[in-house]
Design a protein around this nucleic acid. Sequence first.
DNA 1: GTCTATAATTTGATAGAC
DNA 2: GTCTATCAAATTATAGAC
Lengths: 196, 196
Amino acid sequence: MPRISATKQAILAAALELGALHGISGTTMDEVAERAGVAKGSVYYNFASKDGLFGELLTSGVSSLSRTLREARLSATGFASIEAMVAGMLTLIADNRALAKLMAAEIFRTDRAWQETMVSLRREALSEIEAALAPLVPRDTSESTRLLMAGGIFGAVLMGGLEWLLFSPGTPAAEVSAALLFTFSGKLDAGSPSAA
Amino acid sequence: MPRISATKQAILAAALELGALHGISGTTMDEVAERAGVAKGSVYYNFASKDGLFGELLTSGVSSLSRTLREARLSATGFASIEAMVAGMLTLIADNRALAKLMAAEIFRTDRAWQETMVSLRREALSEIEAALAPLVPRDTSESTRLLMAGGIFGAVLMGGLEWLLFSPGTPAAEVSAALLFTFSGKLDAGSPSAA
DNA sequence: GTCTATAATTTGATAGAC
DNA sequence: GTCTATCAAATTATAGAC
């Protein structure tokens, strides 16, 4: 594994923050260079193109998401593994909110150079959730339906997590996790708990 | 209410489709004009700027989302009103997938000229879900927690809906709705249904 | 490896004829 | 109201010195 140079790391970090702020198309290579504290020539020395830079950023981000989900899934069984995945994802989002914002904005884009890589990596991440779901849903549920459910859970945590960080960052992580899990607990559909 | 001219409508439609495809920053006014079948001068005759064009598109889109959610909420009580909102949102997404994609990509952007309008309109939409949630959660649940839950439900339907349209468009809408609602039904957390 | 300077294009926006 | 022509600025990418 070749070590990533300090320059390359600074460029990636700058691109991530700016991309989260303005989107990929809205971020310029001049800005990236300036924020990274290097000249633009150095950016192009390290990355072949703007697409190459952001492609690397996003694919490595989705990979780390998959790893997190996989570890969480294997750490428990049954519904507890869903709980672990929600908590793991929220931690990841909180620790790297720029990446979360960037991913939320770009995950459904289908016109990038690295589109196919992203589609397959996203599928990989959703498959982790789907695998945890498989023993919890009726046996005749099709794989595509389970993937739909997985997409829903993923979307819930991502949007809930961003809502949290952007609009009520004071809330403790555990409370956010509990709130999201509450919606999956079925207690919403159990009469009127507020009267209890 | 002034009627919207055919030209203006064509421009809005073109901007919506291109924006869904390439994002707002990735869409050029030249492309918009070409796709709308008018000259660029006509685009600027109808809209003061690119920001004005997309701002109008997004704010009207979020408004119609709020309306749909409100109607769905009032059409039922208890958990059934959540079910109605999920179904209503999915219909909206299916009928206007370009708008759904555009919204998913831009809803967390915080650097636009119309940022404040969007934030308040989004809050309005989430408040509809939050209102339906209020009688279903423990009485001591704070408003910000309920909004977090609302964000989660919103995210689940949006991402699940896009997953549906992009990757398994053959699935009937009712099945998608049922799959997403299943995750909120608590049946995930009820032992191992696959063994039943 | 990093920098400065610059080429080649693209892009938002405007002017003014019709 | 719509078009053509055009400007001024921005933007991706490269060349070549150090």
